[in-house]
């Protein structure tokens, strides 16, 4: 057994790219679910909006615009435009699409519509008929050079206890900065009267309305804002892996975010960070352990093969959701009193 690999994967899970991606998505989901009580099951689509917003702008839409208008935007211009599309435009449109029909209705309608939108995304993103724009199932590549050109680190060296290559380390540093900024913003907003209204809506929307709060508008604001956090997460993912691919944003990805959030504590500012770190430490290291067990024939091929290892993490997430929701909805660090108050 390669213990070093196991320990490395543990630490990468705790602080690495995946942690950053899912912590960002979970911050967004915290605004939705933790503070406003919105059952958004389409956070993966918001993440996809970030990934595709950037990738499509740089690789497909941007060049098409260049061709058709005579504008001559360079790749790096397109990259920055792409970031704007990824972080603002795409999630905004998506949030309106999900929110307008459902935010006036009972919470479960949003759940149904968001999961339907996730399916619509999957069908459209994989459809060969749109290959020209989305790259269908293979996705899009070749949109990250502007970003990595900014990196002060040498690509061939390894950094931070040999955990990361230069490019990875650059991404992780940028990711951590975004994460810090995002958490600070979130903290400010939640502690403000604005955040108080969100919580009131989560507790009882009619009461908030009777007190003069436009619940619909607040829910929409939360949906958009949380979606934007998700989009940033998705964008980091796309840049980190240098590809925007439909399979990275399937419906089930949303539930990874849910597990991370509930694990760390929904409705707490640091919940998403703690939860995502814990989740990925567990998932990544267990993944490495299993792969090694399989590779070294401690687990016979008949019981588990290499491809099946990848499926185990989904089972763990499913199991995690069941156990958390049933027994510790307030998160693993939540206290008794909150537990009592959790039955809303």
């Amino acid at each position: 057994m390669d213990y070093q690999a196991i320990i490395e994967s543990l630490f990468r899970g705790l602080i690495g790219e995946r942690f950053i991606v899912f912590a960002l998505a979970a911050i967004g989901l915290n605004l939705h679910f933790g503070y406003t009580g919105l059952l958004n099951f389409g956070q993966a689509v918001f993440m996809a909006a970030g990934a595709y917003g950037l990738a499509m702008t740089v690789v497909t839409i941007g060049p098409a615009v260049n061709r058709n208008t005579g504008l001559n935007m360079s790749e790096s211009t397109l990259f920055w435009v792409g970031i704007f599309m990824a972080v603002v435009v795409f999630p905004l449109v998506l949030a309106l699409l999900m929110g307008i029909p459902t935010l006036r209705l009972r919470a479960d309608y949003l759940a149904i519509v968001t999961i339907a939108v996730a399916e619509i995304f999957r069908l459209i993103a994989r459809s060969p008929s749109l290959d020209k724009w989305t790259g269908s199932s293979d996705g899009l590549t070749g949109f990250t050079s502007t970003f990595y050109d900014l990196s002060p680190f040498t690509t061939t060296d390894r950094y931070f206890f040999n955990l990361f290559t230069g490019n990875q380390f650059f991404l992780v540093l940028v990711g951590w900065s975004i994460l810090a900024l995002g958490t600070l913003l979130c903290w400010l907003m939640i502690k403000s009267p604005w955040g108080r209204v969100l919580k009131a809506i989560r507790e009882d929307e009619d009461a908030a309305r009777s007190l003069g709060k436009n619940a619909y508008s607040y829910k929409m604001q939360a949906l958009i804002l949380g979606g934007m956090f998700g989009a940033v997460g998705g964008m980091v993912r796309a840049v980190g892996f240098s590809v925007a691919q439909p399979d990275n944003f399937i419906t089930d990805v949303t539930f990874f975010v849910y597990v991370a959030l509930i694990l760390g504590g929904a409705g707490k500012v640091f919940g998403p960070l703690v939860g995502a770190a814990l989740l990925y430490a567990v998932l990544d290291s267990s993944d490495t352990i299993l792969r090694q067990l399989v590779a070294n024939d401690y687990i016979p091929e008949s019981i588990m093969s290499g491809t099946q290892v990848g499926q185990v993490r989904f089972m763990l997430v499913g199991l995690g959701l069941i156990l958390l929701a049933a027994f510790r909805p307030q998160g693993i660090f939540g206290n008794k009193e909150e537990m009592a108050l959790d039955d809303r």
Binding site: M189, P193, A200, L211, K213, L225
Partner: peptide, 17 residues
């Protein structure tokens, strides 16, 4: 109780931060 107050400027998303 504080929620009941109307006209709190900090209830706008922009000003909240």
């Amino acid at each position: 109780m504080k929620l009941g107050a109307t006209g709190q400027k900090g209830e706008s998303l922009f000003r909240s931060i």
